[in-house]
């Protein structure tokens, strides 16, 4: 009972602190502002974990249903070897290979059909349509075709990441204005020169958008594909078997690794985006 009250007390206290922090008028002191911007979500996150821990203990929730964060952490510490092996199998092999192949082929196909407006008009509506489809359903078929190992998972990832990349690149290549293109024309620049100097840079925000969408899609695709058959290693495999054995803390450890890997992947792409498209208004606005 005390733990539950403590949970609520902590929650209210944290909320109050956040309210006060937001109310501080920092004026032009950007450094102070940045610290507050970082602290507020951090406090909120810590609150979630503390309340989770206290409520699970206070309400005596069986650990089979929802283990407290401390228990998950303990499990992560003790089974790093297994987690690393799973991470290697799912992320380093299937996700990376599929991501590179899927994004690469989507990009190349977009460049190829760029020369034919006819194909463009045909492919764009179809690409948009395909992105609404439950592509994850091809997972059983891919497992059947490419076997149980990581190749079949990479194939699922390729299919999932191909269309977002295709559609976004085609849109991005169309984003440069007629004026700029005419200018390139008056410079007598070749198709290739126009591409590298003008159209690919203007397409970069769109391409990075697709890369970011794909970074989360790739991880999901690889893990779900493992439910349909896999060698005895891999994050999806571990999740489905440990659920069966009611080792829920192991499952949550695996989820934590997946979330961390997904965030790091997304964050990495976002960082590269900031470096490459530094001129874009949405990034310049953040820097000021």
């Amino acid at each position: 009972m005390i733990l539950i009250i403590a949970a609520f007390a902590f929650w209210i206290a944290a909320w109050w602190v956040n309210q006060r922090l937001v109310a501080i008028d920092t004026g032009l002191n950007t450094k102070q502002q940045r610290v507050i911007d970082l602290a507020v979500p951090l406090i909120f996150g810590i609150t979630i974990f503390v309340v989770w821990e206290l409520l699970v203990r206070g309400l005596n929730v069986p650990t089979v249903l929802l283990p407290p964060p401390s228990m998950i952490w303990a499990r992560i510490i003790t089974s790093t070897a297994t987690l690393w092996a799973d991470f290697q199998q799912t992320f380093l092999k299937a996700v990376i290979a599929g991501y590179v192949l899927g994004c690469g082929s989507g990009f190349i196909v977009a460049l190829l059909i760029d020369r034919s407006p006819f194909l463009q008009r045909g492919l764009l509506p179809l690409g948009n349509f395909v992105s609404a489809l439950p592509i994850i359903g091809v997972a059983p078929i891919m497992v059947m075709w490419f076997g149980f190992d990581w190749q079949s998972k990479a194939a699922v990832v390729v299919i999932m990441t191909f269309f977002p990349m295709l559609v976004n690149t085609v849109q991005g290549l169309a984003a440069s204005g007629n004026m700029e293109r005419d200018l390139m024309n008056t410079y007598a620049s070749s198709w290739w020169q126009t591409m590298t100097r003008l159209r690919l840079p203007t397409a970069a925000p769109f391409i990075f958008n697709a890369l970011k969408i794909n970074s989360t899609l790739a991880l999901i695709g690889a893990i779900v594909a493992e439910f349909f058959g896999t060698p005895i290693v891999g994050m999806g495999f571990r999740i489905s078997t440990e659920v069966g054995r009611m080792n829920v803390d192991m499952v949550w450890a695996e989820i934590a690794v997946a979330a961390l890997a997904g965030s790091a992947f997304y964050g990495g792409v976002a960082l590269i985006e900031r470096a490459v498209t530094f001129w874009h208004p949405s990034i310049r606005a953040q820097k000021s």
Binding site: V40, P41, F44, G45, L219, I223, V224, V243, I255
Partner: peptide, 20 residues
Amino acid sequence: KSVMPWVITSQTIPILAIAP
């Protein structure tokens, strides 16, 4: 300030993977 970053973080958890 507090909810929005976590809404975004929540989506990096591959929920489809833990659906089972």
